[in-house]
Write a protein that binds this DNA or RNA. Structure first.
Lengths: 124, 124
DNA sequence: CGCCTGGTTCGACATGTGTCAACATAGATG
DNA sequence: CATCTATGTTGACACATGTCGAACCAGGCG
């Protein structure tokens, strides 16, 4: 394996979690890779989405219902809109349980993005 | 210290490279933190910028002149525009050397973003 | 000095995006 | 079934953003 303990907090086979792209520093991205990766970054490129995502990610059990996190200074439809965006970007998944809808983070995508930003482990 | 060897590829005092925010998973972001972090993510949230950034980052010596990376399918003014955005976001720095202008990556910012995406090292 | 090449800035335009109010839907509960 | 609460969807609108061509600045060179 190329890099052994870069993100030891995820799956053991941490090489498999990045079906998207190599580290940004490894070689110039192709148009397709850039398109894919940019979609994820763009999803986190909004303050409200970032707060929502962080709220879900840091919530107990890695999941939270909308009612728990919708206090970010915008109207409820806007919250819903942003959560949808995050879902479309593959960063969150949602599940309805009775009255409430719970969102949870997709850890593999987080890890993939983290690896993208890794300084090229050329020497390792 | 809270997290000892999350991104061992950077400076030894890797805690100092993130003057921005804690990991997304540690606690809900404040409005200010989200604003700051979103600015960086947004900068990488465009395919063209991502290609340019990757081209610079992966170039020999971590720097490249515009002429080396401007082959991304958009006009040259547009390239310049995106490079400016990346510079404003703190991801790149530029320096004129004779005829050419060289861009290089700001590794500390890369590392900071990587840490942001770290899965909360709660257990560690 | 005049000109050429590399790069940035300007002005304009089309498109994308964040936001809200109003309406619609899904379950729970009486 | 009536109704209430929790979410999502729609339509509209202001604003930001990506893009280009044209004009402009900076160095090197004859």
């Amino acid at each position: 394996m190329s890099n052994t303990k870069v993100l030891p907090l995820v799956e053991p086979d941490s090489d498999a979690v990045a079906p998207c792209c190599p580290p940004l520093t490894e070689r110039p991205f192709t148009a397709d890779e850039a398109e894919t990766a940019a979609r994820m970054f763009k999803a986190l490129g909004d303050p409200v989405r970032l707060r929502l995502f962080s709220a879900v990610a840091s919530h107990e059990g890695g999941e939270a219902c909308v009612c728990d996190i919708s206090d970010v200074g915008v109207s409820q439809p806007t919250v819903s809109h942003h959560l949808k965006k995050l879902k479309e970007a593959g960063l969150l998944t949602s599940e309805r349980r009775g009255t409430w809808v719970y969102y949870r983070v997709e850890p593999s995508v987080l890890a993939a993005m983290g690896k993208l930003l890794t300084i090229a482990p050329a020497a390792a």
